[in-house]
Design a protein around this nucleic acid. Structure first.
Lengths: 144, 144
DNA sequence: TTTTATTTGCAACATTGTTGCAAATTTATG
DNA sequence: CATAAATTTGCAACAATGTTGCAAATAAAA
């Protein structure tokens, strides 16, 4: 984890690497991602920051992070959109998140299982796969 | 496929089997599902029916169909919710849709690949899987 | 420190989804 | 087939979520 100071510095470099200005909103939101054990959705940021930031700013910040390959979206069957930090190998035009996602039916948390590879899918003839998204629902380690 | 007459009868039985009244809205929406090659989302119904039905009625109809196991949801990374018909083996408390979903990046269509099984996922110790959702993006047969 | 570029917050709006209730339709009953 | 009972529908009103333009504030560059 590291001290608060170290985290702030790490966030600073991450933003500068992505050619983004280092602002309070961006720093705070990245901090929340790093502290969190799982994926976050828009509403979480308003709660966790106590409405310090405008809704619009949060939307725009998340979009910017997506564009720069800092975070990725996780598919859901409801209208919420969940986001999680990408691994360091991701960049603006190249996502390398070849992991699956796990949603716990008990605690509601969604986490990235970074060690669990996305399986090979054997598609019918004529179909070309580009990306494969896997979301497993069940009971997580902590809730078992 | 069958004649219009036959489809209407099939829909009637399906609704009665699920202990639902046979109404115009429900018949029309099921008809659209059966005609459609892929998954549909709420907005499609308003378009396809030419605003014949109230938004609220469509929401409630889709929810009812979900509850009865007539349709299922497909996960997405945006705020839209996509629905598709379940296979005949599904019932109110028992879904048996063990297939993957394919979203074409060209035509935007989402389809159920009924012959393609959901792969076994080997989770880390401590995790219990309940359902596995797989959505593959790429280029479909027709767009290739 | 000043200039320039970027980001933020506000207002206003668009879209999507929900709830209560009266009217209309469907199903059950005599 | 007519009527009663149950269910479904449409409307109005609201809540939540997401978007856009623009002026003020902040960060980066000079």
């Amino acid at each position: 984890m590291g001290t608060k100071q170290q985290i702030t510095e790490r966030i600073g470099s991450l933003l500068r690497e992505s050619k983004l200005s280092v602002t309070e909103t961006r720093t705070k939101i990245l901090e929340l991602f790093m502290k969190s054990s799982g994926a976050l959705e828009h509403a979480d940021f308003e709660k966790l920051t106590g409405k310090t930031f405008d809704r619009v700013t949060i939307y725009r910040t998340l979009q910017t992070f997506l564009d720069k390959g800092i975070i990725h979206k996780i598919p859901t069957t409801d209208t919420s959109v969940r986001y999680a930090l990408c691994k360091s190998e991701c960049s603006e035009h190249d996502h390398h998140d070849h992991h699956i996602h796990f949603k716990c039916e008990e605690c509601g948390n969604t986490i990235c299982l970074d060690e669990t590879d996305v399986p090979q899918i054997h598609l019918p003839k004529g179909y070309a796969a580009h990306t494969v998204e896997v979301v497993v629902s069940g009971v997580c380690k902590s809730c078992k």
